[in-house]
Design a protein around this nucleic acid. Structure first.
Lengths: 95, 95
DNA sequence: CTTTCATATGAATATTTGTTCATATGTTCA
DNA sequence: TGAACATATGAACAAATATTCATATGAAAG
């Protein structure tokens, strides 16, 4: 009835990714279309290094995918599901 | 188009609550019905103090409500929405 | 091949967070 | 009032996390 402990840990890890305003902002920006690292860095207002670190986390959790075009790497949301989860949270805090 | 910074912070804070396996476990247990602090403590396997601290966070974020019956305080989910958010996460990690 | 540009990575640091221990608050019952 | 019980709270500590700085990797152009 209650999920396995290991499932609960994975569930927590999943939500933890959304529990940081930098990452949430990145995800919101990527909703509108793919962006390269430098664009994200400028838009979020953090150093390129910080953005790269966060992108690695987002990729590990399969929330974003990337493709290389020359020197530039473009990131985008992995699937539409992600946007739905963000919307659900937004609805909840606007009640 | 992109939510306000303050909204993003609140959104992150909201998801952060789900990003801890202790709290997720407590929420899953409370799905089945109200429980007092000691029951939660036993079921989760953490000290009563730790559970109380987490319950305070859950209450601050309006995820749980409580009622007092004598010496005992019973906690339950604040609304059905919460269960939906947990299910959404569970679906995502089981793909 | 070397320079330049975009991104990734590792170490260091500061901050946040979860748990425990000790104790306070509040309720019931003798 | 005082003892016993359930819960809440505060301080302390340990562990996890986000950011920065410095530098490495990889790709394109001269």
């Amino acid at each position: 009835m209650i999920p396995e402990d290991e499932t609960l840990v994975r569930l927590a890890e999943f939500y933890k990714v959304f529990g940081d305003s930098t990452r949430i902002k990145m995800l919101c920006l990527l909703r509108r279309g793919e962006l390269c690292v430098q664009e994200l860095s400028d838009m979020v207002g953090l150093q390129q290094s910080a953005i790269s670190h966060q992108l690695r986390i987002l990729k590990q959790m399969a929330l974003v995918v990337n493709r290389r075009e020359g020197k530039t790497v473009y990131y985008s949301l992995a699937d539409d599901h992600i946007a739905g989860i963000i919307d659900m949270g937004l609805e909840h805090i606007n009640e």
